[in-house]
Amino acid sequence: MDTPNKVSRLQLFLSLPIDSVAALIASITCLSFSPIFIRLSELEIGPNATAFNRFWIAAIGFWLLNSFLNVPHQKQNTELGIQKIISRTDIGLLIADGMLLSMGTICWTWSLTNTSVANSSIIHNLIPIFTILGGWLVFGKLFENRFILGTFIAIAGVMLLEVNDLFSLNIGQQLTGDFAALLSAVFFGVHPLIAEKLRIKFNAVTIMKWSSTASFLLVLPVAIFAQEQLFPSSVTGWFSVISLAFVGQMLGIGLWTYCLKNLSSGFASLFGLLAPIFSSLEGWAIFSENIESWTWVSFMVILFGMYLAISSKFAIKSQVNNVSL
């Protein structure tokens, strides 16, 4: 009696769009390097200035990339007399997406200077909960029990991953950093919902072009008000912010937005829980850091939760949008 259900689950797992899954994995890999570049940057400039440089460099990159990709389309549209109109609602959503990214990044970078990386990562990785909650409250989305169960199992795995570091925290001293990490989870949790909405009409590069521009314009006055040094003064500092913009923003967030063409925002957010696994493996490969047996157990818990979510019907959108790139 269970055979048809098992077959349908297997078929659902195999039907995941390969290009979107590959983009999502590449996105999480790039995002897993972000804390490293943020830490290096904050040795020289503050968290607000770090976010400012991340966004303005990425904005220039996305504008150049958008111009390069749109040349053939512009010629074709001119010949056919086609003109794409951006409505006020579209503009509002693009600005809102930029606000969410900028505020989320500010809170996250600030939390890394006021609490441990372990604590900040655990709280920041609660993003899927806020994506699911926002999808239910704002957009009326319904979630399969299997997906919700997989989400909480995967989050439990992330908490197990950092359980040893939790016992060494000075809670009273780091409450403000923990709260900032929680706010970053809220902002980044709502961001995929807005990006998924925009993805119906726009390609990923267009969305990131406008959101990155809005982000750096919003962060600039914050950095000036905080009286932070705006730009790095060394080669290492510039390497850090350029790498953060290219790897973290253009590839990390850009590929994340791209995959929302076929994958649901809730599933994409849940997939972000793989970032701690990638960060641990990167630490092992680059810095020869030991991976304890407890860490491997947490890896298995995260992957099991991911499997439950992947094999749910909520992973893939019911309707695929025909938007290029």
Rank of each mutant, 00 (worst) to 15 (best):
S212D: 06
P192M: 05
L244W: 01
S41A: 11
F271H: 05
N290F: 07
L133Y: 04
S280T: 08
S41E: 10
A181C: 10
A204W: 01
I155S: 00
L169C: 06
F314T: 05
F246I: 12
E228T: 08
W108S: 02
V323C: 12
G157I: 02
F37H: 04
L10Y: 15
E228K: 12
L260P: 02
S32I: 00
G135T: 01
V71P: 12
L100F: 10
F278W: 11
T29K: 03
N77R: 13
M103F: 14
S20A: 15
I200T: 09
P35C: 09
I253H: 15
Q74T: 12
D19V: 05
K313L: 14
L220C: 11
S264F: 02
I36Y: 04
F187T: 03
F139D: 04
G177H: 07
P72G: 14
L16M: 09
L65C: 15
Q227E: 10
L308C: 03
P72Q: 14
S32T: 01
L101R: 03
D2H: 15
V222C: 08
F139S: 10
S34G: 08
R54I: 08
L31N: 00
T236K: 07
L64Y: 12
A23K: 10
Q319A: 12
W294P: 00
A180Y: 15
F202R: 01
I123K: 01
S102D: 04
G177M: 09
A156P: 04
V138R: 08
M159W: 11
K313H: 07
S279R: 01
S116N: 08
D90R: 08
F239P: 02
